[in-house]
Design a protein around this nucleic acid. Structure first.
Lengths: 215, 215
DNA sequence: AATTATTTTTAGGTAGTCCTAACTTAAATA
DNA sequence: TATTTAAGTTAGGACTACCTAAAAATAATT
């Protein structure tokens, strides 16, 4: 196993490769590599029984691939938690560090980190951290953009992207923030919400609202 | 810069490449690669102005290479300290984890770790940790094997090797242990010391005694 | 000094991951 | 249905770091 193979497995997982077929193009876009490179790597991952490939139709994870993806997500989120909780990183800055550390993290190290952090359930942007056995509760897949006006909701998770997290940080929005959805501006305009803590109205862009999960 | 290049720089440093010419063979042995691979890599490191190579004579670090080596040692030892102090690793088990983490550690991460750990001066086996600027006090180069009988000394540092550290751990010997040297058995026999804490006599092998630094 | 042994370098190959460009398949449109 | 467009696959090449084996340089021994 190499870091690059792990990256392929992880992106397939993140794109939903446990339930649907992921296209070559989605992977190429996600990893910023050429389509030909994807086909080549997928061939190797098929040999290793990590993915199933139906030529021209798409790629899904095997049970084994899914398990590996969970382990990687766990390691990634444990590092993010450590960086924020103990090393005082900004939430927006942890992703890239965790991205490289996750590939160099033995299972022993992950477990030790998990204990040290107090068996945390969520990473700093709200993602669920699988436990020692890879079990984790399903989290909400409902996105802020799809909430009807007037609903009171809690932000549970934000897609792990530096620019998005910085944008939301500046707006004072993060995981666990409670808001009421006031209205959706037309033509892919922003979603206007009111933060319950201080009654402030906040305008969240259409695109951002699709990358914020709520409950 | 790649992890392998960093490993070459580090081994040259550890073999004393700031003061003397290191041979191709020493590096090949230290990294467990073929001599031809060393020549090839050294050529690249010369292009990057990290080392100076006199063909057939040896290799030394440039100022730049020395600086890089210090940074790597610092990162390595910071991770070791974290693993022992916070993640409850055994001293003997930290080397291999630190060996891979050091290559994935940004300067920002190293500084954050350094602060988190309370700006430690020594790693768990007694190595000096350079500060934020790469400065560090010279540590003793006197080895236990060279101490005369009757001398009272403190163990300051043990070469970072898993088997050696395990061996010494089982003998109850670690950095900061104070002992009196009783005698040196002939024919490369063990050095017999008495631990001051509990007056126990301990026999330390000839080879181990050459890998223990004292003051 | 000549020979032998050791070390270093050079040369030619392999494996992993990337690329571009050409070709094939599938989907969309006319 | 025929054509065009998009997506996926194949082919050939590049780069890194490794290897082994042969050649060259240096050191050691006779």
């Amino acid at each position: 196993m190499t870091p690059m193979k792990e990256d392929y497995i992880k992106i397939i997982f993140e794109l939903g490769g446990t339930e649907r077929k992921i296209s070559n193009k989605e992977i190429a876009l996600g990893l910023d590599v050429a389509a030909g490179s994807v086909t080549e790597m997928i061939t190797k991952l098929v040999e290793e029984k990590l993915v199933i490939h139906e030529p021209y139709a798409g790629i899904t994870l095997t049970q084994l691939g899914h398990q590996l993806a969970i382990e990687l997500v766990r390691k990634h989120r444990l590092w993010e938690t450590f960086l924020v909780d103990d090393l005082k990183y900004e939430v927006a800055d942890v992703h890239s560090e965790a991205e490289v550390l996750e590939h160099q993290t033995s299972d022993k190290l992950a477990d030790a980190l998990y204990d040290f952090l107090g068996k945390p359930k969520f990473c700093p942007h709200g993602g669920v951290i699988p436990d020692e056995n890879g079990d984790y509760p399903e989290s909400s897949n409902i996105v802020l953009a799809d909430i009807e006006d007037g609903q009171e909701i809690t932000i549970t998770r934000i897609i792990d992207n530096h620019d998005l997290l910085t944008y939301l940080h500046n707006l004072g929005v993060s995981a666990n923030t409670k808001v009421i959805v006031l209205r959706h501006e037309p033509f892919e305009g922003p979603v206007i919400v009111k933060r319950l803590a201080d009654e402030t109205e906040i305008s969240i862009s259409f695109k951002a609202a699709h990358n914020i999960f709520v409950q």
